[in-house]
Design a protein around this nucleic acid. Structure first.
Lengths: 339, 339
DNA sequence: CGTTGGGGCTGGATCGTTATAATGCCAATC
DNA sequence: GATTGGCATTATAACGATCCAGCCCCAACG
């Protein structure tokens, strides 16, 4: 016999079938129903019998079959998390926060990525809904009615967005933007730009309106500059337009675009923060890496991930809960704005 | 009627039950079995009937219930991906690659995180196995026998690791390390250090042995320096030990530690690359951000993600395939090593 | 005109679990 | 000693799909 065979590996098809409640029933001499009761209605059974059943279950290494359970109950024990782009570092902390709550409550999380495409997002959401107890839609690019339609089939919570009648969790951008603009103003900036994100993004609109609102209130002028994508490439590509705008500082839709712009400035000999101040959004991994380190508006992503998952849980259980949950942002002053 | 109610949102409990094959059967006047056949054995049915059934299914907006299908078939249509730490940017591309293949083949991917804990990893793997057709174990911290044991219950492939009898996918670190050391040697470095990763990591051992092997062959001295964690903090924390080692260059276990060390050097006025050359591993998002930008050994993570998923698929289908798949690495020369 | 064959469809049985109604049993009550 | 109550347990019917062994009908054949 070869070494590989001796390793104890099972060849295809020889995998052992996992034990079922019938096996436990046979072993302990009770009926399958009793086993089911013993295992998930503790205390509603004779203590000894329950003990015996639990021991047998442990001995056989019994694991409940979630599929089989899902059929009669309709509960799958899994939640779906749909983001627009999995490779966006913003989602790290959000995912981690959601993951923590999920594993804490014994739920499984399924992730999916819509690649910034509304069609794909819809298709994926519908596909996921059949095998999930509820859905977390992060930064959805769908239209409001589509989201409302989705929510008629399974509970759903939107993150970074507000849709009529749907529970929502998102950051309150005002405190962060206020602090950032205050700082910029104190430094003497009077003409600034907002480097925009995707048109379909609700948060993009929110950030723009808030910044506009505050800037105007403080006698600063602010212009909107479009970008092709909310990525480093998108930021780099907007460089010429930023230069042409004749502003002394830029507030970017997110850190990715800010980082792209920052790099482009460096490559073209534009001094940051001397000639141009840059502030990003999110405080993603790596924002502190460049020289100058990126000043940015920090969103509590981990908390948002946790809270939105809990909110979804409440929605699934039909518990009363707030319609909207908004968590504050804060300005993190590093080196990309300065005197 | 209030605006919110008019929005069409269903209140709890009023969610519409999704249509089943029975509904389709009733609508078309055939039996449920026929519907089942029509929908997933195309061509084995009268063409008109099939057409009629498909139309009805479309009209009702029928989606197959994966749970119900999983019971008789034993196939869940989902795959599990278990990583040691979801927040590690290395996994971005890997996840993305795997995700692409999964959605391409209509499979769902479930992610989980073992937080660098072997116990948690085992528990999570066992939990996942009950609801998944196969498992991808990335950078597992388990012992070989444990992994072999897991593979007796469901198909499994390991990534970044080699276990007797288990299909594996991992990068071939030799070309990358060779190129990096060649560069270092050309620059005059003779005493270098390897800044180690977790002891339980197979890749860590692999990298160290390979670097040692090559260095010794080229008359360079190389020492191993431990680190507390494969993170930026771990790298920063090793700074003093690196200084004390009296080496002129460091090869780090991964970019995270390299980045941590690099930042610490900057903060302590140690000139990189002048006084100390640094090369990382992985080429993660952000490696090019600092000044000096990090030179690193690039691993084809996206390809590894794709290939390992395909390999798992082959394993599930019982198709013949290579036991090991190794993909080459390459040195990416940026600014953290130079004359 | 009866038999055969095959295509097209249907009738259960099944997967592993839960929910609900039913049963058996024993002690307490009249 | 028959009735009642209550508890522990069990039998049975779902849940939504798949699978396999038929069944029916019609055409072709002897």
């Amino acid at each position: 016999m070869g070494k590989t065979d001796a390793a104890g590996r099972q060849r295809n098809g020889e995998r052992k079938a996992p034990p079922t409640i019938y096996d436990i029933a046979r072993l302990t001499g009770v009926s399958p129903s009793t086993v089911s009761r013993a295992l998930n209605k503790p205390g509603r059974l004779n203590e000894q019998t329950e003990r015996r059943i639990r021991d047998a279950a442990a001995e056989l290494g019994y694991r409940i079959n979630p599929m089989a359970r899902a059929l009669p109950t309709g509960k799958t024990g899994t939640l779906g998390l749909l983001v627009s782009d999995i490779t966006n570092p913003v989602y790290f902390d959000l995912v981690r926060g959601a993951e923590r709550v999920a594993s804490e409550t014994g739920l499984t999380l399924v992730f999916a990525d819509s690649q910034e495409s509304p069609e794909l997002e819809r298709a994926t959401a519908e596909r996921l809904q059949t095998s999930v107890d509820g859905l977390l839609l992060v930064g959805s690019r769908l239209e409001d009615p589509q989201i409302q339609e989705l929510s008629t089939v399974k509970p759903l919570v939107v993150v970074n967005r507000l849709v009529d009648g749907i529970p929502a969790v998102f950051p309150d951008v005002r405190p962060g933007i206020t602090a950032a603009l205050e700082r910029l103003r104190g430094l003497g900036h009077r003409r600034i730009a907002y480097l925009a994100g995707p048109e379909a993004s609700w948060m993009n609109g929110m950030k723009w309106r808030t910044a506009f609102d505050i800037a105007v209130g403080w006698d600063m002028s602010i212009v909107e500059i479009k970008s092709s994508a909310p990525t480093r490439e998108g930021g780099a590509e907007a460089f010429q337009r930023v230069k042409a705008a004749g502003v002394s500082a830029v507030l970017a839709y997110n850190d990715l675009t800010a980082l792209g712009l920052l790099r482009e400035c460096r490559d073209h000999g534009v001094d940051v923060p001397g000639e141009l101040g840059i502030v990003g959004f999110d405080d993603i991994f790596g924002a502190d890496l460049p020289t100058p380190a990126l000043s940015t508006i920090k969103c509590p992503w981990a908390a948002i991930g946790e809270r939105s998952l809990r909110r979804l849980l409440a929605e699934i259980d039909g518990d009363a809960a707030e319609a909207e949950l908004v968590l504050p942002t804060a300005f993190v002053d590093r080196e990309s704005v300065a005197a």
